[in-house]
């Protein structure tokens, strides 16, 4: 195979379905990083993320014959990965912190004024201490919101794709995304305030 050839997903998946192990390897290498990041954001643990990648691709190899091209391949794969991740979280029975996730307070926004954020150098994300606090904020976001945020904003799936993967309505995807974004904005606002004062 010429390395300059574009990746033809459908052709590779069909070859994998017919038992071509090279094609299976290609699919693994193409999607492993994305599934790792999905697992990492879902669980907050590198070890769990690696385990999720492994279990996801074991299932992919086992079930690829059942993929019927009714959605894109990665949508199908993400659904497997998400189910694997959610099962893992449930099995661990992590005690989740109860946090309030609400709609934006529009009265406050429209009448009390919203301070501009100071200019923020994006290199701050390279600071491990800042990243750890940011990770903690994301981890505190309840799962129903976190999954939507991960799929829509971090993996840039569409509302429809997210709706299909999570088996919820597109309106529900939008509402959860709006609440997730607002929650994270408020957490980031606190973090930025702390960074500036320190």
């Amino acid at each position: 195979m010429n390395t300059q050839e574009p990746f033809n997903e459908e052709a590779v998946v069909r070859r994998a379905q017919s038992g071509d192990r090279q094609a299976l390897s290609q699919l693994v290498l193409r999607f492993s990083n994305r599934i790792y990041h999905l697992g990492l954001r879902l669980t907050g643990s590198r070890q769990d993320a690696e385990d999720i990648v492994q279990d996801t691709f074991l299932l992919m190899v086992k079930k690829i014959g059942q993929f019927e091209f009714k959605s894109s391949f990665y949508t199908w794969l993400y659904r497997i990965a998400l189910n694997v991740g959610l099962r893992r979280l449930k099995a661990k029975q992590k005690t989740l912190m109860q946090v309030s996730v609400e709609d934006p307070d529009f009265d406050r926004i429209s009448s009390e004024g919203t301070r501009e954020w100071p200019s923020l150098d994006f290199s701050i994300v390279k600071d491990p201490a800042f990243r750890q606090k940011l990770d903690q904020s994301i981890a505190e976001l309840p799962l129903i919101y976190r999954t939507v945020f991960i799929l829509r904003d971090l993996h840039e799936l569409s509302t429809e794709e997210t709706s299909n993967i999570l088996q919820i309505s597109p309106s529900n995807v939008k509402i959860r995304l709006m609440r997730a974004r607002n929650f994270l904005k408020e957490r980031l606002e606190q973090l930025i305030g702390t960074e500036i004062q320190s």
Partner: peptide, 19 residues
């Protein structure tokens, strides 16, 4: 105020994507 709110949402997403 509303403009600043929307910009903060946008920057929140960008910062988390960068992280």
């Amino acid at each position: 105020n509303c403009k600043a709110f929307i910009e903060k949402i946008r920057r929140t997403i960008e910062i988390i994507q960068a992280a």
